[in-house]
Simulated scan of single mutants.
Amino acid sequence: MSITYYGYPNCGTCKKAKAWLDAEGVSYHDVHIVETPPSKEQLRKMVEISELPLKKFYNTSGMKYRELGLKDKISTMTDDEQFELLASDGMLIKRPLVTNGLKATVGFKESNFTENWKS
């Protein structure tokens, strides 16, 4: 199954993740997360298969997250509202986001990538 990599070109963590994927010879479809963020349905599926809580998908260190005061708002939002919000702005999503439809990872940790994406 093909791998989709959602990243942002200016993101240092994304650069490390791409370098790792390239060095390991992992082929992937590169998607600019801001220009083409995953849909609400895609995000819902990725949260489900990642087995991570929805809050792990937020880019909590991002300016947009802070500007919108999401730290205090998330706890009062429904999951549906959160998926809608994340799908509306790729800058709110923690990156890189990598999936093959059967599993998904958020952020970059070499051990996690080795476990999930190494052939």
Score class of each variant (00 low, 15 high):
residue 23 A to I: 10
residue 96 P to N: 05
residue 101 G to F: 04
residue 106 V to D: 12
residue 9 P to L: 06
residue 56 K to Q: 14
residue 111 S to K: 13
residue 23 A to H: 10
residue 56 K to L: 11
residue 70 L to P: 13
residue 7 G to E: 01
residue 21 L to P: 01
residue 107 G to V: 14
residue 14 C to H: 13
residue 20 W to V: 02
residue 28 Y to C: 03
residue 65 Y to E: 13
residue 113 F to N: 04
residue 67 E to C: 00
residue 102 L to W: 15
residue 97 L to D: 03
residue 104 A to M: 05
residue 90 G to W: 08
residue 66 R to W: 03
residue 99 T to S: 11
residue 57 F to K: 02
residue 76 T to N: 13
residue 56 K to D: 15
residue 88 S to R: 07
residue 32 H to F: 15
residue 60 T to W: 09
residue 40 K to G: 09
residue 72 D to Q: 15
residue 39 S to Y: 09
residue 61 S to M: 02
residue 59 N to G: 09
residue 16 K to D: 09
residue 106 V to W: 12
residue 41 E to V: 07
residue 109 K to A: 15
residue 49 I to D: 08
residue 72 D to E: 14
residue 73 K to D: 06
residue 54 L to N: 03
residue 20 W to R: 06
residue 90 G to C: 11
residue 28 Y to P: 04
residue 104 A to V: 07
residue 57 F to D: 06
residue 110 E to I: 00
residue 4 T to R: 03
residue 62 G to E: 12
residue 108 F to K: 07
residue 32 H to P: 14
residue 93 I to H: 13
residue 54 L to C: 03
residue 10 N to P: 04
residue 96 P to L: 08
residue 95 R to H: 13
residue 33 I to G: 06
residue 105 T to M: 09
residue 86 L to D: 07
residue 92 L to K: 05
residue 52 L to H: 00
residue 81 E to A: 08
residue 112 N to A: 08
residue 45 K to R: 11
residue 99 T to C: 08
residue 77 M to L: 12
residue 13 T to E: 09
residue 111 S to M: 10
residue 75 S to L: 06
residue 75 S to N: 11
residue 107 G to F: 15
residue 11 C to P: 13
residue 115 E to N: 14
residue 35 E to R: 07
residue 23 A to N: 10
residue 112 N to V: 11
residue 78 T to S: 14
residue 35 E to M: 09
residue 10 N to V: 07
residue 9 P to W: 12
residue 24 E to R: 11
residue 81 E to K: 06
residue 45 K to N: 05
residue 65 Y to N: 13
residue 3 I to V: 15
residue 4 T to Y: 04
residue 90 G to L: 12
residue 65 Y to H: 14
residue 49 I to F: 04
residue 87 A to E: 00
residue 84 E to D: 10
residue 118 K to C: 06
residue 11 C to Q: 11
residue 15 K to T: 03
residue 88 S to M: 08
residue 118 K to L: 10
residue 79 D to V: 07
residue 33 I to T: 09
residue 80 D to F: 01
residue 5 Y to C: 02
residue 112 N to T: 13
residue 116 N to L: 09
residue 21 L to R: 01
residue 88 S to H: 08
residue 108 F to A: 10
residue 87 A to F: 01
residue 81 E to T: 07
residue 30 D to N: 01
residue 61 S to H: 03
residue 77 M to I: 08
residue 11 C to S: 14
residue 5 Y to I: 00
residue 30 D to Y: 03
residue 90 G to R: 05
residue 69 G to E: 14
residue 74 I to E: 09
residue 6 Y to H: 06
residue 3 I to S: 02
residue 15 K to D: 03
residue 89 D to K: 02
residue 19 A to D: 03
residue 27 S to M: 12
residue 45 K to A: 10
residue 84 E to G: 00
residue 57 F to H: 05
residue 8 Y to E: 08
residue 116 N to G: 07
residue 51 E to M: 05
residue 98 V to D: 02
residue 92 L to Q: 10
residue 73 K to Q: 09
residue 94 K to G: 15
residue 22 D to H: 06
residue 57 F to Q: 04
residue 1 M to T: 10
residue 64 K to R: 10
residue 29 H to I: 00
residue 67 E to Q: 02
residue 19 A to W: 01
residue 52 L to C: 04
residue 83 F to R: 04
residue 63 M to L: 10
residue 111 S to T: 12
residue 103 K to F: 13
residue 42 Q to R: 00
residue 57 F to L: 01
residue 32 H to W: 13
residue 117 W to R: 02
residue 39 S to G: 09
residue 63 M to N: 11
residue 100 N to K: 05
residue 47 V to H: 01
residue 59 N to V: 08
residue 20 W to P: 02
residue 3 I to P: 11
